[in-house]
Computed example of a mutant assay.
Amino acid sequence: MTETTKKKDPFHGITLEMIVTRLMKHYGWEKLGELITIKCFMKNQSIPSCLKFLRQTPWARAKVEELYLATEFTDEEPVKVKKVKSDAEEA
């Protein structure tokens, strides 16, 4: 991977597990379920369960990655993020 490619990829060096874990610690399961309406955030809440679902469901993984990029991970101010619509809400 070239240096230019690394700079363009916001997830370079970040695993899906790291993304889900950081979002869960930042928001909690309940808030994640409100922001992204998928069952693994609302029921059977565990990192392994979410990873299995997200690896098999590209649209859900894209929503999680979008939320990760939109989240300001600071303890100093409230989180400013827009709700990511689920496919059911978009239809």
Rank of each mutant, 00 (worst) to 15 (best):
V81P: 12
P78V: 05
S49F: 05
F73E: 05
F53N: 08
P58K: 14
C40R: 08
L35G: 13
P10T: 05
I38D: 12
A91K: 15
W59L: 08
T37C: 10
E72Q: 14
F41D: 02
K25G: 05
D75T: 14
L67V: 11
L69V: 08
D9H: 11
N44Y: 11
T2H: 07
K31C: 03
K7Q: 09
K83C: 09
E90S: 06
T15Y: 08
I36L: 06
M24V: 03
T5A: 14
T21F: 00
W59T: 12
K80N: 06
V84M: 11
W59H: 12
E90C: 08
K83M: 10
W29C: 02
K8I: 03
E72T: 13
A60S: 13
T57K: 13
I47C: 02
G28V: 02
A91E: 13
F41M: 04
F53W: 11
F41H: 02
K80W: 00
F73K: 07
K52S: 14
L51G: 01
C40T: 08
T2N: 11
K7A: 08
D9A: 12
E17R: 15
K6C: 03
E17G: 09
K83T: 14
L32F: 05
E89Y: 05
R61G: 02
I36P: 07
K25W: 02
R22L: 06
V64D: 03
R61L: 09
A91F: 08
T5G: 03
V84G: 08
K83V: 14
H26Q: 09
T4G: 00
I36M: 06
Y68K: 10
C50F: 01
A70T: 08
K25R: 09
D9I: 10
I38K: 12
K25Q: 03
R22D: 03
K39P: 01
A91R: 15
I36C: 06
K6H: 04
K7L: 07
E76I: 12
L32C: 06
A91M: 12
T5R: 13
L54R: 11
E76G: 09
R61H: 06
T4Q: 10
